[in-house]
Design a protein around this nucleic acid. Structure first.
Length: 165
DNA sequence: GTCACGATTTGT
DNA sequence: CAAATCGTGACG
């Protein structure tokens, strides 16, 4: 079956819907890739854990831009984290990719395994070099609170693909 | 310009 | 539980 790149309109929706929709899809970069199995949503409003909470700055500029682009940042000075920009232009919603089958678990380990760095920040996911392909929806989706954050930790915005045999 | 902090991972 | 390590945002 032919690989189909997710269309721009897929990302121009509410952050939570994009997050759920990404589960089961395939992330591909530099010949490596795998099925997305774990993500977290960072809302444009009322979410103190989101980088956009502090307002529009040079770093978060891409979040306010066109949806379907990659938002990569270095955190703890050691690990890179890959996000997908959601919501229409002007609304800073994003989805953190936490787990990809074949690349490992954890935001930092994924980017390291795929070779993604700050150089890939802002790249168009519908044109590459990083692309996301349509995939089989997971058998089920588990929803829990997000991991590793200190602000707005009570929000239930983590989605995990639950595959049943 | 300077200072404190973080959406993580790894080792003690 | 604590360290590693650096870009970003707040403040002057």
């Amino acid at each position: 079956m032919k690989a189909t790149i997710l269309p721009r309109r897929f990302y121009a929706r509410p952050t939570v819907e994009v997050a759920r929709g990404l589960l089961g899809c395939v992330l591909e970069y530099s010949g490596r890739g795998g099925r997305i199995v774990e993500v977290e949503a960072y809302l444009p409003d009322g979410d103190e854990a989101a980088h956009a909470w502090r307002g529009r700055t040079a770093r978060t500029e891409v979040l306010y831009g066109e949806p379907g682009h990659a938002y990569v940042f270095l955190n703890y000075g050691i690990h890179h984290c890959l996000n997908v920009v959601a919501e229409p232009v002007g609304t800073p919603g994003c989805v953190l990719i936490r787990g990809v089958g074949g690349l490992g678990d954890g935001p930092g380990k994924l980017t390291r395994a795929a070779g993604i760095t700050l150089a890939e920040n802002g790249c168009d996911l519908t044109r590459g070099p990083i692309v996301i392909l349509r995939g089989e929806p997971p058998a089920g989706v588990e929803q829990t609170t997000r991991i590793g954050i200190t602000r707005s930790a009570h929000l239930v915005l983590r989605f995990v693909a639950k595959d049943v045999e």
